[in-house]
Design a binder for these strands. Structure first.
Lengths: 346, 346
DNA sequence: TGCTGGATTGAAAGCGATGTCAAAGAACTG
DNA sequence: CAGTTCTTTGACATCGCTTTCAATCCAGCA
């Protein structure tokens, strides 16, 4: 029922080839003919059929971004960066989330089955063997976001978490002058927690601070949980001259809240640091010292890499590593300050 | 280069018609033949070409969701609800954001131009004439999210903000016992702010509380701004027996923080209410009384409506109105409590 | 044996675009 | 004016699938 190229051709009294040329801005069509065709197109409100077009061209100029979940700022930052870059590169971006009653495996399959995309960037919460397997047989150009840092056989963008966490820890033992550091992380199996915990241990070791197993807590990345834990410990921590390194900003915020309620002054009595530099980091009093993970950049780089792969499927795989950045705010007692209160550059 | 239906047919020694039947689970193909074809498909790792398929079927089973922006929890909630529902209805959902160097108009155009979608749900920050015009000429089934409540010529889902704000205000003047209410909103031109402010005025009027122009502040929905404002006023507000109605949770959180710092007890000295019931609402001490906007539901309803429209393009337009829900937590002094601390049902 | 009819299968006609190639004029050269 | 080139146009094959529609096979039946 919708108008096709044939209708336009008829109305303009030309062949479909000519119409096609006009659409694709080929320059071998006469000015007057072009005008006639264009007016016919307008008159019929004609839109080329994308399926037919894609069938011939074998491309849609659309790339996908699959995230494990759409909650949280990380993801919207990634999307923002990816979107912008994709558009610069001449692609449209569509986003899909994997969770919600469906695991990433089956999502990949869905996309794979009816791929109308030229490529996808996938971020998975865990790069399991199953998923790796699916990817290996993936019929589409793809890149992996935040994959493993060591020789995966995929194009990927990785964040050097370890590096960021080390920087933060060094700040705590250095300028912030911690005598003892409490680590509050997520589950012990969580890859992010693992990386951050390793950095924690490394810096404690290299600076000769005490490493007590009881200084490490494994929670669930939630505000409320950290708040409850802190309520029981803040006084003890404060009197022991501790700093707290929370593995994300939300937990750090919960700890700051508990400390304030206990009448402690952050950072004087208890310094607290977070991780991720999400919106919450600026929503505590005082705002949090944290580590900014360059999410927007990650999205952008992913698109860049993806488009290179689309352009040249033979190109050898690449891994790009991104460095997080230490953001010093008032929650860790120090004179150091940085012009870091602006949103990350796109 | 990728395998096509012809390759499968050859390998299985059947015609492409038969392969097609197997793919589409037609039941008029012999068991043994089917098995042969299926094994060939597996062996070749064959995936039907989605363009060719779409060209014939005139559908892709993919629907789109276009949001003005992907920041914030609203959006992820909408996406969550929409995703789930879309899948139930047999569609895949892709999401696109409109902002970021591109206005929604041009995004719509992009989608429109190369539509591979069966339909879209669009949410625009402002339903300007320009956009309405684009929509009117839209060649695809679509629904509008959070459009205007009065007779737009589109299928749309609207949230009855007014209703929610009235419920909250009545709670403040009733159980919370406010003598005077401060309104902290966004820009005076913002549609959300306008609706909430109207409710504010209405309830003040009906309950005979004072309406001072100076009790209404127009900020920018940001935590920091509200915090700064509150720092100057909280003591005065508290001693006047005020409640604060902030037009979103972030500003409410900023106000709570300022009050706590000033040594005031929330809610005893100053009651504060927010709006939206975002994650932040549970990240203040005490947690915020607020209004939950049923975002997930909105997404789901949008998909439902969209799919109905796709199924029957002739169906008359529909408007669906969704009611927000008052969520009472400790930030407004009251004995009233509700089982409202769980995440919204999907 | 010859027919009817159900179960399978294949041949071929699109779907709506792109792109190749040749044809038709127009313009230019000798 | 014939021959050559350039510009502009149209015919038609093609992409990979779905979907008639007809053909084939074989059982059942008179």
């Amino acid at each position: 029922m919708p108008t096709s190229i044939v209708d336009v051709a008829k109305l303009a009294k030309v062949s479909i080839s000519t119409v096609s040329r006009v659409i694709n801005r080929s320059d071998l069509v006469n000015q007057r003919t072009r005008a006639r065709v264009e007016s016919a197109i307008k008159q019929l409100n004609y839109q080329p059929n994308a399926f037919a077009r894609g069938l011939m061209l074998r491309r849609s100029d659309i790339v996908g971004l699959v995230l494990p979940d759409l909650h949280g700022e990380f993801y919207s930052e990634i999307i923002r960066g990816a979107n912008l870059k994709a558009r610069h590169l001449g692609y449209n971006l569509v986003v899909s989330s994997a969770r919600d009653g469906d695991d990433s495996h089956s999502l990949l399959r869905a996309i794979q089955q009816r791929a109308l995309l030229d490529g996808v960037a996938v971020m998975v919460s865990e790069l399991t063997d199953r998923i790796a397997e699916v990817l290996a047989a993936f019929p589409l150009p793809y890149v992996v976001l935040d994959g493993e840092i060591d020789g995966t056989p995929h194009d990927s963008i990785v964040i050097d978490q370890r590096h960021g966490a080390v920087a933060l820890m060094r700040h705590l033992v250095g300028p912030a002058g911690a005598k003892r550091i409490i680590f509050v992380g997520g589950l012990a199996t969580n890859v992010d927690t693992i990386a951050r915990l390793e950095a924690y241990r490394q810096v404690l070791a290299e600076s000769g601070l005490p490493q007590e197993a009881s200084d490490v807590y494994h929670l669930d990345y939630e505000y409320e949980t950290a708040y409850r834990l802190a309520r029981e410990h803040v006084r003890a921590w404060a009197s022991a001259g501790c700093c707290v390194f929370a593995a994300n900003d939300e937990m750090a915020a919960g700890i700051v809240a508990a400390a304030s309620e206990a009448g402690l002054n952050v950072p004087r009595d208890l310094a607290v640091a977070g991780f991720d530099d999400t919106r919450v980091a600026r929503m505590t009093r005082p705002p949090l010292t944290t580590v900014r993970v360059p999410m927007a950049k990650m999205g952008a780089q992913a698109m860049e890499l993806l488009c290179q792969r689309i352009a040249d499927p033979q190109r050898p795989r690449m891994q790009i590593s991104l460095q997080p950045e230490l953001v010093v705010r008032e929650s860790c007692g120090t004179a150091l300050r940085r012009a870091a209160d602006q949103p990350a550059p796109a």
